[in-house]
């Protein structure tokens, strides 16, 4: 069976774009954290088990 490998140069990395996305996400994550903290206050009262946001 023939093996094919391919590699593509990513070229320019769209720096400006990543900068803007970074700034927008800064705001998004700021509010997400607040919402998460508020939620976790209520969650802890009901349930003591650890609910990390990692396990989606």
């Amino acid at each position: 069976m023939s093996v094919q490998l391919l590699y593509i140069d990513p070229g320019s990395g769209s720096m400006l774009l990543q900068f803007i996305i970074g700034a927008c996400l800064g705001v998004v994550f700021f509010f997400k954290t607040i919402v998460y903290r508020i939620k976790s206050i209520f969650r802890k009262e009901k349930n003591d088990t650890d609910t990390t946001s990692e396990s989606k």
């Binding site: 400006l16 990543q18 970074g22 994550f29």
Partner: peptide, 15 residues
């Protein structure tokens, strides 16, 4: 101007 833009590791991870 763009080459001087820096994006932190935290920003990359958030992205």
């Amino acid at each position: 101007k763009q080459r001087s833009i820096s994006v932190s590791k935290t920003k990359i991870l958030q992205n």
